[in-house]
């Protein structure tokens, strides 16, 4: 019995130590919540493309979760060859907390290292019974708003900043914006930890009247089993340009010897094939010709970026989501 368990333990240690580290063409893509469907398609297409170009077989493993949590796992030692997260701040953390990527990682790929974009839209119940048209309708009494927790979810931070940016633009002041966002969060009955959890709460559990969601997440909810008969999308008058970035994790690919294939993987996202897959999965492509092809799917919406409205992610994070930031102020003391 003892020998048996000892050898099992040894086997497990070996599996852990060498299992996925040394295989030649194997990548781990650590990503955020709503990209599950996107990367399922991208991985299949890239593997075929890579096989054709080099004759090598590449397998890509996926891990999904809240963006902040995923970033923290990579810092704690989850050996991601590439990260595809919800916002630049979470990849910045890889530079500041573990020296896993260089500080200027965002300049290494075109378009701020964000091969596709998205925006924040409203998903409402069929027929829009509460008549929700724009951001102002979200703070009306009696409207239930579903959004995840900005402390733990990347998507929720985009939601939060989109609402803030709208209010600041309209009334021209941070105090008014803070009041607006505070009133909005008073209408939130459930605060899930991740974007996908919030969607499940709204779609499956029937909570709330409107879901603040990534556009791709809202499109997916429509596409899933009878979603078109139950929900519709409302595009607000103005929203935020969400740029989910991607990066090769230098420290890991150098250890694994996978830099070449990891870089090719991310570059594949910028090819027209990669852009089409992104568009099909509800992400707005950067490539103009692909964008033209899918124009009907993505209505025109005026957007502002985090850099324009908040002076970049470092500043936005410190002002709004750090401990004691505006989000904490809104929530404490006592509602």
């Amino acid at each position: 019995m003892r020998h048996w368990s000892a050898s099992l333990l040894a086997a497990a240690l070996a599996a852990g130590a060498f299992g996925h580290a040394r295989a030649d063409a194997s990548l781990l893509n650590v990503s955020y919540d709503p990209t599950r469907e996107l990367y399922r398609d991208v991985n299949a297409a890239f593997a075929a493309d890579w096989k054709q170009r080099t004759g090598e077989t590449v397998t890509i493993k996926q891990s999904h979760g809240g963006s902040g949590k995923q970033s923290r796992s990579v810092i704690d030692g989850l050996e991601a060859d590439v990260v595809t997260l919800a916002l630049a701040w979470d990849i910045d953390a890889l530079a500041t907390h573990g020296n896993l990527v260089p500080a200027d990682w965002q300049k290494r790929l075109p378009d701020n290292s964000a091969p596709y974009t998205s925006t924040i839209v409203f998903l409402v119940r069929k027929g829009n019974p509460k008549g929700i048209k724009d951001w102002d309708d979200l703070v009306r009494p009696g409207v239930g708003v579903i959004t995840p927790n900005p402390k733990t979810s990347g998507g929720a931070r985009w939601n939060y900043l989109a609402a803030w940016g709208y209010a600041a633009k309209k009334s021209g002041g941070d105090a008014a914006a803070k009041d607006f966002v505070a009133r909005l969060f008073r209408n939130v009955p459930v605060l899930d930890t991740g974007a996908r959890g919030a969607t499940t709460t709204f779609v499956e559990r029937g909570q709330g009247d409107v879901l603040l969601a990534w556009e791709n997440e809202a499109l997916l909810a429509l596409a899933e089993g009878g979603g078109k008969d139950r929900f519709e999308i409302v595009v607000p008058s103005v929203s935020i340009l969400a740029e989910p970035p991607v990066a090769v994790v230098d420290k890991v690919v150098d250890k694994h010897g996978t830099r070449k294939v990891a870089e090719a993987y991310l570059q594949f996202l910028y090819t027209s094939a990669g852009q089409e897959i992104a568009a099909k999965n509800g992400y707005r492509p950067r490539d103009a010709s692909v964008a033209a092809k899918f124009a009907a799917k993505f209505p025109n919406v005026p957007t502002f970026t985090v850099d324009e409205a908040f002076g970049g992610w470092q500043k936005a994070q410190a002002a709004h989501f750090a401990d004691g930031g505006t989000f904490d102020q809104i929530y404490t003391p006592g509602r």
């Binding site: 907390h97 009955p189 605060l191 930890t193 929530y331």
Partner: peptide, 23 residues
Amino acid sequence: AGNMPMVSEIAPLLITAKLDQYD
């Protein structure tokens, strides 16, 4: 739970939330 800070957030969840902010 609903996980609303101040209302329906349990302490173990607060621990994971703090972890996810590198705290």
